[in-house]
């Protein structure tokens, strides 16, 4: 669907005909997507349409049923005859950052330890260096003063910013954000969106699932609309959100206007 051909290294994530079934429920029914380096790709769609499943497939938290995918220089085929070892999967995941709706910070670690954990345990980065980097990341998300605080003493917005810093600490090729503001009190949404906005300015490649349409219009490079496991329409934020062609997208957006 891309109009002009792209140089291979201009594309950070390339997904082809990806499907995911749970028994005989097909949650993702053949999705293809190109995400360019440094761009924020937004994904919108009604509840249950398969957005989370799609995102989790990209991180191999779910094993796709068929299709193929490339992130950076790592290409993977799914389906019969294609099995990855646990080590290969782990290595792949370490290059893909994931932020969850419910934060899932490690409760037995301080904010700083949460951010250090990936580099130290997975990448075997020296402690001093990991701490240095973690401190810088906490400062970047505006939480330098919370470094020694345990997650239960953080507000939802602060916890989510720590979770973003934790994912960034792995220096991922791409960040996956799954409705990261949906569990927050309305007054805390802004501080998290501000951090994501900052990341788009810095050219972080991201795939963002969200219901924040105003935010999508403001920062998305491209948007896709998913419905019932399929991508029904894709384009720039303006094209998709202001001049939707697909009738299902039109009715989906109408619900947000009211």
């Amino acid at each position: 669907m891309m109009s002009e051909p792209l140089a291979a290294d201009a594309v950070m994530v390339e997904v082809k005909d990806l499907t995911k079934s749970y028994g005989n429920v097909e949650a993702v029914k053949g999705v293809s997507l190109l995400v360019r380096r440094g761009e924020a790709q937004f994904v919108i769609g009604p509840s249950g349409c398969g957005k989370s499943t799609f995102l989790r497939c990209i991180n191999l938290l779910e094993e796709p049923s068929s299709g193929s995918m490339r992130v950076g220089e790592t290409a993977i085929e799914f389906g019969r005859g294609h099995r990855m070892s646990a080590r290969e999967q782990a290595r792949f995941r370490s290059n893909v950052g994931m932020v969850f709706q419910q934060f899932h910070l490690f409760p037995h670690m301080t904010a700083l330890q949460n951010v250090m954990e990936g580099p130290v345990t997975v990448k075997r980065v020296a402690r001093a260096q990991a701490r240095h980097q973690a401190e810088a990341l906490l400062a970047k998300v505006g939480l330098a003063d919370k470094r020694d605080v345990y997650p239960r003493h953080l507000s939802g917005g602060q916890a989510q910013r720590v979770a973003i810093a934790r994912a960034l600490a792995m220096q991922p090729r791409v960040m996956l954000l799954d409705e990261v503001t949906s569990a927050l009190d309305p007054e805390l949404v802004g501080e998290v969106l501000e951090v994501i906005r900052q990341l788009t300015f810095e050219g972080m490649t991201m795939i963002v699932v969200t219901h924040e349409m105003a935010f999508a219009r403001e920062v998305a490079a491209r948007v896709v609309f998913m419905d019932a496991g399929l991508i029904l329409e894709e384009g720039s934020a303006e094209e998709l959100l202001d001049r939707p062609r697909n009738p299902r997208l039109q009715s989906f957006l109408r619900r947000f206007r009211n």
């Binding site: 991180n59 938290l61 646990a86 080590r87 782990a90 290595r91 792949f92 995941r93 370490s94 290059n95 893909v96 950052g97 994931m98 969850f100 899932h104 910070l105 490690f106 954990e117 990936g118 345990t121 997975v122 979770a163 934790r166 994912a167 792995m170």
Partner: peptide, 10 residues
Amino acid sequence: QAARALGMMP
């Protein structure tokens, strides 16, 4: 999930 997402082994 959070641990797996960081790339940890079991």
